[in-house]
Each structure stands twice: as C-alpha cells, then as structure tokens.
Design a protein around this nucleic acid. Structure first.
Lengths: 226, 226
DNA sequence: TTATCGAATTGACGGTATGTCAATTTTTTG
DNA sequence: CAAAAAATTGACATACCGTCAATTCGATAA
C-alpha cells in the first residue's frame, strides 16, 4: 500500500541506491549495513528484518540507513551482486558428454555441486526467490540473470540429446532446462532443513532429481539402472 | 521480531483462532473477513495486506479483526481449509496405467488439469507456499497435507514402473513423487503470469514437465517420441 | 596548524500499523 | 421484556517508516 514518490525533481540524495559520492567512511558504512542485513537474515525472514533492526545492529540510526538504501530489499539486492550461482566446477559437471555411460552418477555429482553452491548463499538466495515469487521485478530479474548460465548450458545438452534421438525433438530445449532448474531450485531451497520431514531423506530426493536430469539429458538406458 | 505471548492463563478471547462461541453474526463477520482478505490478496502480496486494510474493507475496525484472528496469515489459513488441491478428474488422470501407450499425452492432460486446478485457488495457494517457504510451520503443514493425496498416487505409479523394470529400483518412490510435485508446484505457481517472459512459452513448459512425468512413471519408449 | 567544504550522521517529527483494553451496543434467549 | 451473552469499537501505548534540517566529522590545501 505504499504510494508513489513525490514530484521532487531536485537532487534527492537516497533516490539512487547510494549517495552520489561515497568516501572511505561511506563505503565502510554501506558495507556494514549489507553485512548486518545478511547476518540478520540468517535468523529471521526478510519480512522480519526492519530498517530499524539493521540500523541498530551497526549502532546507527534509521536515518543513516536511508542515506544508503531505500529499504531492506535494496540491501539484499546489493548483496546479491557479489553472489554467484555457478562455478567452474559446476560448469564442468554440466558440460560433460551426457550420451556417454555414467550419466546417473554424473547427474548426482551435478546435483550435489549445485545444492552445495546454493547453500553457500542460502540466505540471500532464499530471500531473492521469495521476493521474486512475491512479484518483485528486480528480484525476478536477478534470479533470471543468475540462473541464465545454467539455463544455457542445460539447453545445449538437451539439444544434443535431441540430435542423438534420445528424447523427443518436439520439446523446447529451453523449457526442458527450465523445468530442470525449477526442480533444482526447489530442491536446493528445501535444503537440509526438512531432512527426513516428509518421510523422504534429502539424499533420496537428490538421487531422484539426478535421475530426472540424466533422463532429460539423454543418459537413459546407458546401463545405470539398478 | 515479535515476541512470545504473555503468561496470561485466563480465558484470553483471541488466543484461539476465534472467540469461544460464535453466534450467527459472528460467523458472518468471520466469513466477511476471510472473503475480504482473499479479495485483497488478488491485488497485493500477503505482506502488503494489513489488518487495517482488511478491517477497512468490511467497514470495521482493527479491534474487531483481532477478535476473530490473530493476524492476516491466520485468515489465509482459515481460507485454505476450504480449498482442495485435488479433484476426481485429477485422480482419474494420475491413476491410469502408465505402462500402456500414450503416456506422453496422458501426462500432458494431467499437467493441464493440475495447473488449472491450482489456478482456481491461485491466490491462497501462492500465499501458502510463500509462507511455507518463509518457514511458517502451519503453512508448511497445510501444503504437505494438501499435497499428500497426489504424493501417494504418484508414488504408487512409480512403484509400478519400478516393478516393471522401467526405472531404477533403487530410487525412493516418495522422492520421485516429491521431485515431480516440486516441478508441478513451481510450474503452477509461475502460471500464465510469466507467459513468454524468458523466451519460453507456458505451453512448452507444460510439455516439458509432462515428458518428465511420463518418463518417471515408466512411460518412456512407448512410441510417443516425435 | 587550521580554515574550509563536502561527506556523514542523527534528532526529531508526522504519519500509519499493531495489538489490547474497557466500555458500549447489539443480539439472543429464557 | 429483561438478563445474559455476543459483538463492536474508541482510545491508547508502542513501534516502524521515511524525511529533513541541523550538526558533526574528516580530508585537503594554504
């Protein structure tokens, strides 16, 4: 229910994500705010972290906060800029030849690596996805951006599987990549949290996801079935 | 940052989800609150719907609201009790013989039905998942509960596929069901909203998901490939 | 060293939401 | 129709939001 900003045309300091010029101290304060926010995020959900909380955490005042950020979400957005959802290891794992034997094991390694990587930035990724789900365009964009490399890599592999006649040619590679990423993100988001909660272990879930992926990448019927 | 409730042991009216006794008028007011909340939810995310908003919407006061519910989430929880995530049609679609030909088409029909059903309660399901993701146990429980029938049905089919040797026997049926449901929920949640946003159409995504499912249920290699 | 100026901080304020009473009004019922 | 129960609400204490003007801090140059 927040309304539009007023029609003030002048310089309006905090209208950008940070003041027009940042000195040494300013950068330090800004970073402190980011760190404090991420830290608070570990214990509370995004919606339970208030500007007042963050300001208090660095022994400052809300007014100071607003010099650097428009709100808590903006801080998370800033934190996201230093977080990657891919890695050389992960790239290597996905860029293998999925038509060769051992697809199931490779897929499992891929899933492990993906969820592990995700876990390293669990706090902000979780917030990112939450905010994106809530309809915040900026977070939606951020997620898309960070997911793109994997999307491209997976699509590429799907294409190869199609060319080899392993999976139907009428499927859209991007869509296949999309569904795989849906599964992976959900899997990673669940994380070790719900370990054994629904009567299924995390390891089992990862194995199932891995099988899905191996299938979709054309690795079915290469002697991996038990 | 909200704290525990105080140690007041007496009757404490709104400590339960509704007053100890509800007369005719009370039930009406309660329902009005639920309806108003769901309605407001259509336009704003959960976090943008305040107690004040809901109260205003029925020309009442926040104080009245608090007689019936502890907060907005509780209202959604109440609304969820009258929403089902399954249907006879959907049950029929999942309970077919997936080892028989036509699995891909059947899977597509299943996906269509599922997403359609989900859409009918989009507002509260979205909120439910969001809140569950945020760590709210009650919503997590609600989601689990409402997903269970499908979970069971899918697992059953996975088991049959395993017995027929169509998919590896070392996979946990429940986990396979879980991953499928992960995909389906994400797919449904995305919905027609992001139509064509990432360069993939919703129809294509559904097709890809359907193929996943057909695969996992043992319907691969039954002559459906293009 | 100190004067200067831009960077950085904050106290204080108006607005709004939360959650809880006690007091009042409305409805039901004997 | 009068008593009892249910329902409503005004008023309040508390807390967060977002903005400014006023102030303090700190780097630089004379």
């Amino acid at each position: 229910m927040t309304e539009e900003s007023h029609a003030l045309e002048q310089i309006s300091v905090a209208n950008e994500s940070y003041p027009r010029k940042l000195g040494n101290k300013g950068q330090r304060t800004r970073q402190q705010l980011i760190d404090a926010t991420v830290s608070l995020l570990e214990k509370n959900g995004l919606r339970d972290v208030s500007v007042a909380d963050v300001a208090r955490a660095i022994n400052s005042s809300p007014a100071t906060f607003y010099v650097y950020f428009k709100g808590v979400p903006e801080v998370v957005l800033a934190a996201l800029e230093n977080a990657s959802q891919t890695s050389p290891e992960l790239e290597a794992l996905i860029n293998r030849d999925w038509l060769a034997p051992g697809a199931t094991e490779a897929a499992l390694a891929f899933v492990e690596c993906y969820t592990e990587l995700w876990n390293q930035n669990r706090n902000i990724f979780a917030v990112r996805n939450l905010a994106a789900e809530e309809g915040d365009e900026r977070f939606y964009e951020a997620r898309m951006q960070q997911a793109r490399p994997m999307m491209v890599a997976i699509s590429e592999q799907v294409k190869r599987a199609q060319e080899a006649g392993r999976i139907p040619a009428n499927l859209s590679p991007n869509s296949c990549g999309g569904t795989i990423l849906m599964m992976l993100e959900r899997l990673a988001a669940i994380g070790p949290v719900s370990e054994g909660k629904d009567g299924v272990s995390y390891a089992e879930l990862k194995a199932a996801a891995a099988y899905h992926i191996a299938m979709m990448l054309g690795g079915a019927g290469t002697g991996d079935a038990a």
